[in-house]
């Protein structure tokens, strides 16, 4: 019990350092954009594919269940609400941890192992500024962007199933959803969550890389920890945010 708590404390101290050393003049826009490419654009394939199939299977299941209550019309509403409010942000954050978080951790861990972080320090270049901050900001931007794309793909998957498999009218499917999803309460609520998750995922990925032991086992352990810690803390934060926002 002591060790996870200690680890949490260290992660918070680390974040404090990273943020306190953030100055507007030192922000590396070019580097941040590059990190958005590595963390965001390169996660597109997994996000698009997973999003589409989640939309398909969710629609299939809700149709099957709701038909028993004679409420099949509500399928699109169930799909959109569960996506916007929960599944989109949570699944994307966990997929992000697996795809981009691990590679951030491994990259920084290897930089530690190959003394690149020391070299920066010795050149009087702050590694927090050059390595940590761009990745934190990139995560903050990339995850909400991925969540939106995930939701978009899942809706497409839902429409695809409803129209081509169930033979539904696309306009009524879409219209039912449109009527019951609210911009502020449902859509923006989910977007707010995804910003929190993006920050969390990037923070943990950078932290575990930063604190990795400079050996191959150390880096391997750190990448595993990134996935586990992100998955757990995203779900916990999801509950906390939902409780506050609803």
């Amino acid at each position: 019990m002591i060790k996870p708590l200690q680890e949490m404390g260290k992660a918070v101290v680390f974040l404090g350092q990273a943020i306190s050393r953030m100055r507007l003049t030192s922000l590396q826009f070019g580097e941040t954009l590059r990190q958005i490419y590595y963390a965001g654009a390169r996660s597109l394939v997994i996000i698009v594919t997973c999003g589409f199939f989640v939309g398909l299977v969710l629609t299939l299941q809700t149709y099957d269940t709701l038909t028993r209550f004679g409420a099949a019309d509500a399928a699109s509403t169930v799909l959109a609400l569960s996506l916007f409010r929960e599944l989109g942000p949570v699944l994307t954050a966990i997929l992000f941890a697996g795809r981009a978080g691990t590679s951030i951790t491994a990259e920084i861990g290897l930089m530690r192992a190959t003394e690149q972080l020391d070299a920066l320090d010795l050149m009087a270049i702050d590694p927090m500024e050059r390595i940590v901050q761009p990745r934190l900001i990139a995560g903050l931007i990339a995850v909400p962007a991925l969540v939106i794309i995930f939701n978009m793909m899942a809706l497409l998957g839902g429409v695809f199933f409803a129209v081509f498999v169930m033979g539904n009218d696309p306009m009524s499917f879409w219209g039912n959803m449109q009527n019951s999803v609210e911009l502020g309460r449902d859509f923006l609520h989910g977007l707010g969550k995804s910003i929190g998750f993006g920050f969390l995922a990037a923070w943990l990925a950078v932290y575990f890389g930063w604190s990795a032991k400079a050996t191959s086992e150390g880096v391997a352990l750190a990448t595993t920890q990134t996935v586990i810690a992100t998955a757990i803390s995203v779900l916990v934060l999801d509950f906390v945010l939902s409780a506050f926002m609803l």
């Binding site: 190959t114 003394e115 690149q116 020391d118 070299a119 320090d121 010795l122 050149m123 009087a124 270049i125």
Partner: peptide
């Protein structure tokens, strides 16, 4: 103080995502 210091670490510790030119140009 470190700006007046040149340090060569054990394995060079070049930044792998930069070209040789950019590595030298970085400082």
């Amino acid at each position: 103080y470190r700006k007046q210091l040149g340090v060569l670490l054990q394995n060079g510790a070049l930044f792998t995502d930069l070209t040789c030119f950019d590595n030298v140009a970085l400082p």
